[in-house]
Nucleic acid binder design. Structure first.
Lengths: 208, 208
DNA sequence: AGGCGTATCAGCCAAAAGGCTGAGGGCACT
DNA sequence: AGTGCCCTCAGCCTTTTGGCTGATACGCCT
């Protein structure tokens, strides 16, 4: 059995060394490099061409995790990227997946889960922590299902080009509340502007 | 032949009296009331229930012409509204038409044109000045035809949710130029925010 | 009783977008 | 030569959005 080479990218030293120690217990997995920023990660991956890159999404300044994934995949489509992060926000999952991540693990995942994710990744299987999987499935099945009724209502008006003030008037709520709902909608759709929200909402048909 | 009753709505006294004099030459047309603001126009129309309301679009503060048309049509769908204005901007035409205007005349129209527009309006025909007609037809045939190549390019990127800064980078132009193009696009599409522009652009298919 | 999700609202601040005016260069059509 | 359209850019000012924090209230489920 060939040894699987892994590069770790995480801005926390403790996480990297913990993970290195953990992976060290497996005979078929070898950590060949570590990096603490997106840029370093890209460089390390380019140098070692590992089978798997494990990457945190939240990394201080500079290149963010999502962009790093995209570039890694571009540079070498054969290396698998596993997201290894603390939070399972809807937006991050969606974006990581469509940036090309092979799997999405939470940092509290059981060791066995981590090992099998790595082994699965090199074989082309994608593995993810249970809570992540369930969120993602919901997204796939029906993107709007994750929106609350109120949010869906607001989104539908949003696609008609209304301003926050107008939205508030239509729904009999304050502009402050409109902004709160919008922030939630953006998070769930994985976008950060109303323009993008409208674009994705309309294209995900049903909303035309 | 029944006499056609008309209400004039225009903020310029000279225009109203000129029009009144002009229409006075026609035996079958009677001006029953005049108003100088949108609100007054609504009131006058409610009181006299004329066959035709002739309205300027640009009217000082208060209710603007487009909204006035909408309300007039709501209040009484049987009365025809003719827009009688100085300018033939793309945006105004589109908006007036979909607010329910039966015709769109420019103030430099020939008297005969005005008479026949009024007579046509009560019979359900819609009449408009030639330059207006040609603009409108273009819009109908192909909404994008009226956009310059550069504008179309920008609009297409816009529907992907990009910010002005990003648009500038993609097209190798300054943000200032992006804003100029956007302003033109908004005017041509008859909207005033990027959100609305995206919504209409995507829905006018082709842009998905 | 306590926790969770939903919906509501406020205030503050920074970034983005939009309105307005003006301006120069290139190109085509007359 | 002049006119008009397109593309480019700048500066200034206002409005709108978006990010963040925190708060209240209701209903549901355990």
């Amino acid at each position: 059995m060939k040894t699987i080479s892994v590069v770790l990218v995480d801005d926390h030293l403790v996480v990297r060394s913990g993970l290195r120690a953990l992976l060290g217990t497996q005979a078929d997995i070898a950590v060949v490099a570590e990096a603490s920023t997106g840029e370093e990660g890209l460089a390390a991956a380019a140098e070692h061409t590992p089978d798997v890159v494990m990457m945190d999404l939240a990394m201080g300044p500079g290149l963010d995790g999502i962009e790093a994934i995209r570039k890694l995949r571009q540079a070498n489509p054969r290396q698998a990227v596993l997201v290894f992060t603390t939070y399972d926000s809807d937006a991050d999952i969606v974006r990581a997946v469509d940036a090309g991540a092979m799997g999405y693990l939470l940092k509290d995942a059981a060791p066995e889960e981590i090992f099998s994710a790595i082994r699965g990744a090199v074989e082309g299987r994608s593995v993810m922590s249970a809570p992540v999987a369930s969120r993602l499935f919901q997204q796939m099945r029906n993107p709007e299902e994750i929106l609350t009724p109120r949010e869906a209502e607001l989104l539908s008006l949003l696609t008609q080009g209304l301003s926050n003030r107008e939205l508030g008037r239509r729904l009999f709520i304050s502009e402050a509340t409109v902004k709160t709902h919008l922030a939630h909608i953006y998070a769930k759709l994985g976008v950060e502007t109303r323009a993008a929200a409208i674009a994705t909402a309309i294209r995900r048909e049903g909303m035309r």
